[in-house]
Design a protein around this nucleic acid. Sequence first.
RNA 1: CGGGACGUGGCUCAGCCUGGUAGAGCACAGCGUUCGGGACGCUGGGGUCGGAGGUUCAAAUCCUCUCGUCCCGACCA
Length: 578
Amino acid sequence: MRFSRFFLPTLKETPAEAEVISHKLMLRAGMIRKLAAGIYSYLPLGLRVLRKVEAIVREEMNKAGAQEVVLPMVQPAELWQESGRWEFYGKELLRFKDRHARDCCLGPTHEEVITDLVRREVRSYRDMPLNLYQIQTKFRDEIRPRFGLMRGREFVMKDGYSFDVDEKASGKTYLAMYAAYQNVFRRLGLQFRAVEADTGSIGGSFSHEFMVLAETGEDTIVSCTGCDYAANIEKAEVVWSEKGQIKSNTPSRPMEKVATPGRRTVEEVTTFMGIPPQQLVKTLIFLVDGQPVAVLVRGDHEVNEIKLKNLLQAREIALADEALIRRITGAPVGYSGPVGLPVKIVADQAIQGMYDCVAGANEEGHHLVHVDAGRDIHADLYGDIRSVTAGDRCPRCKQPIRLSRGIEVGHIFRLGTKYSEALKATYLDGEGQERYMVMGCYGIGVSRIVAAAIEQGHDESGIIFPVAIAPFDVLLLPVNVNDTVIREAAEDIYHEFLSRGVHVLLDDRDERAGIKFKDADLTGIPFRITIGTKFTKEGLLEIKVRGTGETLFVTREQLVQTLLNMHSERIPRCLQQG
RNA sequence: CGGGACGUGGCUCAGCCUGGUAGAGCACAGCGUUCGGGACGCUGGGGUCGGAGGUUCAAAUCCUCUCGUCCCGACCA
């Protein structure tokens, strides 16, 4: 490709709308442009990267025995009503009516459609295992799209679905997909980690997320320093033991109400009373499927809403608003306490055995002291409802854990028979028995990977693409196209690369060298070959590696061999074929 | 949806508080010089100041409504 003819509008300045690095750089490097909130056009450079990611995903899926299909993006409401998700999925599902006033939606995911397809075609255990996938634009009407491609409303996703005869076979498929995902992310050249995850609205019994490690990630990952346990914080289990609890063998003193005027937060109250936060019972009022519930955690802990939701098997939970809190507790926010509350009380396991602690008195400006959990707190339910903190231990091996940030780029689920039961997807087994198919589903955020790769690979000057997904392998940079020697050498090299199948971008623009160098750095092409005075005077070409900054000078004759020797996945393969 | 910020040539922003003939830099077009890290000079084109309504002799500026965008929270590949 010739730069002079390439639609690559780079920007010197960052548009005001971009906040995170990948978004800024994708706009500046002319990869994407925004049409509306969370909706972007891919320009040629961005599309080339997207296509390379897709190609790797496709190859690995095919290798793992999955077959590619393309399912409709517009879907009838009936299917979603059948699965129950027409109600459940919420406003993220973009709904509309066609000209006949039939309810439709844009596909945010395709469990319904694929299950419908398979239930019509597959009747026998002989037709399984069956594993189908597609790479397609999805639409989810996110409440708050953000960070450019990181959380768009429209995004490219690989979604795959497997159908097996039983749990055992499904587990095998799951493992095969797990391995395929490892291969995908390894080949993409990303630093990543597979973690145990919550299953969210997709449902099912078991799942792993694939996280690209990056500070800007929206997810927190808990990983063990001793073993290979890793989980999303939404899911990570808390190891609880009686040890380390504040306990005493002496009987409690009676509860007592003390004035704590104006002290509402944990910090304010504990500082005021001169106690550690572990000695406070934090009481939060939640609205669980419309019912108020008091949720207790220790002062130094945070409620994990996902765990709470799962424990209560609730559809929807949210913190209560000020008015409701006042109605239930009789006090403003900051003075809620478990003693005498007329609602269901759910407590974290760490609350058990808390002794001589402090809690809100359900009265403005007052707290209770000498509260003994066993005597004074009558929880309806104890469970693991808090998030792991940095001080916790690994639930597997009890070694210290570590918290880090990640971007979720893949998610695999074991669905069991959730959808096959809802949609009556059955087959006949060897004994002629009708059985439900056992499903799995497997997603990869293709467009998000592009953003994640940039989050992980960039410097002050611009993008540093992994070789595997770079839009071009090589950038040829003739410093001055008005110099005949330089221009002809560039054309010569350009044509050799083209004939060898190397993806090469020739910056044949009649621009100053500085502009070309800046664009070269910005667009992140792994290898830059500069043809300048060093060539006209000494016959030397400069190879610069974008990622490492390493530069070396070679003759025209040495060029191909040198690139061949340089460590990269793609370049050698192309060059060798030539 | 709750909280915050912001909409002024293609981009980055000033002007608004204190109403009085729309500005700068970059980008773009032409000419000249320059030519290995976002050059310089001269000339030129381009904005009904997001939109609607109001106040006023007069609105980018003040008021009301509205649309859009971004950030923080609930959602998720």
